[in-house]
Design a protein around this nucleic acid. Structure first.
Lengths: 158, 158
DNA sequence: TATTGTTATACTCTATAACTATA
DNA sequence: TATAGTTATAGAGTATAACAATA
């Protein structure tokens, strides 16, 4: 019988589990409001930031590239996404949102500001504190951290 | 164009997204180590606390009862769970872990103490602070809160 | 009549392997 | 030959609707 973590740690782990569950519920709910699945919403949001080759989408979602074909197919058949050829490498297809897709992604974002409501319960000082604690917990550089594009192990959007 | 939440809130939301992603990865990884899917691991963990009618499992997982049939079928076919009749109501089937299932659930728990590693980066004082902030954020009573069994809207285990 | 669990069905996501067209 | 994307396939999770047994 492996020893259980101390009670304080267990409580925090439980709370994190609750946060995760609530985040998920809200994500799925927001996606469903636009008749999207969670995976479709994630891809659409990703492409709204910048068009990406199929392969890159798979890397971001941490799944096999073959799955992206179907997800983008379904987004494309709904007119939310288009596949464009890449001038530099004719093997590559860039997935990009259509105008309507961009609108949907934008509406998705607003319904997705998770914690806009939960975080509303915290003061600015508390939010700053929470931010710093989460940064320390995650081992994330507390400093501004752009250059997103080529980092192999960036944070995965959910 | 809906106004975006303030930068501080956005940062915190992003951090929470990263926590959610990491939690998920670790959960799936721990489950896979026992050749379980995430859903199977969740059900097994749930039953390790107490045997439950099929219907109750579905409520906890927030999915349709018909899905539980298959998940429990697969756990049962691997000898990790059994269905027992309920003496009080013969319509009801109680799903309960076998001895081996209980062992698997226990090993799962230890690999699942998510944040044992991440939380290790925080001092006890910081953990307490984090706990209190999350409680306030989630609108959870900061007080000891047992009587888990019959609360209809308890925190959903992930 | 209402409820519990199940079955049947259809859709989506997922991984694996094999294929094509480029490079 | 190596890589990008696709196809084919199989397994799992999900919702919906209809069903049998029991209440």
């Amino acid at each position: 019988m492996t020893p259980r973590a101390d009670p304080l740690t267990c409580e925090v782990v439980d709370l994190i589990g609750t946060v995760v569950a609530r985040y998920h519920e809200e994500y799925e709910h927001a996606a469903a409001e636009h008749s999207l699945t969670g995976a479709q919403a994630r891809v659409l949001r990703l492409l709204a930031v910048e068009p990406l080759p199929m392969r890159r989408i798979a890397q971001r979602l941490k799944c096999e590239p073959s799955n992206i074909t179907g997800i983008v197919d379904r987004l494309e058949s709904r007119g939310l996404v288009e596949r464009h050829p890449d001038a530099a490498d004719r093997r590559v297809k860039l997935a990009a949102p259509t105008t309507e897709g961009a609108h949907t992604a934008e509406r998705l974002r607003t319904s997705l500001d998770f914690a806009r409501e939960p975080l509303g319960r915290l003061t600015a000082v508390e939010r700053t504190l929470l931010k710093e604690l989460l940064q320390r917990m995650l081992g994330v550089a507390p400093e501004g951290d752009d250059a997103e594009a080529d980092r192999p192990e960036g944070p995965t959007p959910i």
